[in-house]
């Protein structure tokens, strides 16, 4: 049979394709619906948080940081409760990473604060001597791309039914509702209001002034995102 195949490229190719696609069908498909259900208390990212997530991605923080706490005592002691599938329901793309040059960040919002991040992102070794993390000073002057973040929120809302403008039950029984205005102008106003809260926790005067002027430096968006990781 193999000799026969080796003289017939078409059937050979069909054979190869069948054999290689088999595993994907069996391994990946069955779990698809199950894995995409959110856990209680998981809400979509706000536009500002999404913009921060884009900053995280543009600078490939995931090259050094994971966002996946494995179910071992040594990990839960260090980082908090192990990660659950449904917590990632709104993560497009997922940011689990594959190498921990630095610590896991899946729940970093639970134990680090705005001003801690501000100092750390400006100059990591000043906060943690011996750190090999690069300083990201350019984030204090570069502007976040709010419009693209808004575009993404609108897209996932329309295409994947991500529940914006919907009441979501949180773990403590309260409800949350992540707003997604119908126009970009309204969205911008909401984002600015959220950014002001972050900026008020910071001390860098240039950043504060920028936010007063209605601009949103990348660092503000990034911190909003890091604070949302709990």
């Amino acid at each position: 049979m193999f000799h026969w195949l080796e003289e017939r490229p078409f059937f050979f190719a069909v054979g190869v394709f069948t054999v290689v696609s088999f595993a994907g069908l069996i391994e990946i498909l069955p779990n698809f619906a199950e894995a995409s259900r959110p856990t209680v208390g998981t809400k979509p990212y706000s536009t500002l948080e999404l913009a921060g997530r884009h900053v995280y991605i543009a600078d490939s923080c995931n090259a050094c940081h994971s966002q996946l706490i494995r179910p071992f005592k040594s990990e839960t002691d260090r980082y908090g409760m192990y990660s659950l599938s449904g917590e990632y329901a709104y993560d497009r793309p997922f940011l689990w990473g594959s190498k921990r040059a630095g610590p896991d960040l899946h729940r970093v919002g639970a134990y680090r604060t705005t001003d801690w991040h501000e100092n750390h992102m400006w100059e990591p070794v000043s906060v943690v001597p011996g750190s090999i993390m690069p300083a990201y000073k350019h984030m204090f002057s570069n502007q976040a791309d709010i419009e693209t973040a808004y575009a993404e929120a609108v897209t996932v809302n329309k295409v994947f039914n991500v529940p914006y403008n919907t009441n979501i039950t949180m773990r403590d029984g309260s409800t949350a509702n992540v707003k997604l205005p119908a126009t970009y102008d309204e969205a911008k106003a909401d984002v600015l209001a959220e950014a002001k809260i972050i900026a008020s926790g910071m001390k860098n005067q240039d950043v504060k002034d920028a936010v007063e002027r209605g601009e949103i430096p990348q660092i503000v968006a990034l911190i909003a995102y890091l604070n949302s990781l709990k």
Binding site: A35, R92, P93, A149, Y150, A151, E152, V156, F160
Partner: peptide, 20 residues
């Protein structure tokens, strides 16, 4: 989809665990 933002930006078809 939205008419906003960078033209080359996209969002993955898959979310979270499925994306992984």
């Amino acid at each position: 989809v939205s008419g906003h933002g960078d033209w080359y930006h996209s969002v993955s078809w898959y979310a979270g665990t499925n994306d992984a």
